[in-house]
């Protein structure tokens, strides 16, 4: 499973980032709360390139370089194939950041750890997909 971003339909509105941030860290999609009370840290980033905008998100690669390069074994794959970060173990060496061909894994500098898409694995349909107003994000197998 992974989220595919379609540049041709991406509006660049940025709602994906907003809802991504709000879905994590116990905010359960409450946008207002995370922006007013918390520190919104979105996993996937909206990129604005020549070809248009698109959400740079995790491909949950079959031979995920981030898993293989992780020095602490903090990046794991769950039984559904979702690659996620075990924050108990992540030491913030950024090897995964350096290895991700999509540039998706990003530093979470204030915690000395990394952020990456976990497909909102605790809550069902990824928040970015569910809240994309134009169907530019799709969950695929």
């Amino acid at each position: 499973m992974k989220v595919v971003a379609w540049t041709e339909y991406c509006l660049g509105c940025g709602l994906c980032e907003i809802y991504c941030a709000a879905q994590h860290d116990g905010y359960n999609g409450n946008v207002l709360k995370i922006f007013k009370k918390g520190r919104p840290m979105h996993r996937s980033r909206l990129l604005k390139a020549e070809q248009g905008t698109w959400l740079n998100t995790c491909m949950h690669c079959t031979h995920a370089p981030c898993i293989n390069g992780c020095i602490s074994g903090a990046i794991k794959r769950d039984p559904n194939g979702i690659v996620y970060v075990d924050y108990e173990r992540c030491v913030g060496c950024y090897s995964c950041v350096m290895l991700c061909p999509h540039g998706h894994v990003r530093p979470w500098s204030e915690r000395h750890q990394v952020l990456k898409c976990d497909l909102c694995r605790d809550t069902g349909l990824p928040s970015c997909v569910a809240n994309c107003p134009n169907g530019a994000l799709q969950l695929v197998d």
Binding site: G12, G14, V31, K36
Partner: peptide, 12 residues
Amino acid sequence: ERCIRCGVCVRQ
């Protein structure tokens, strides 16, 4: 009270 300065309105 509700505006979070996310800029979606600006971009849209």
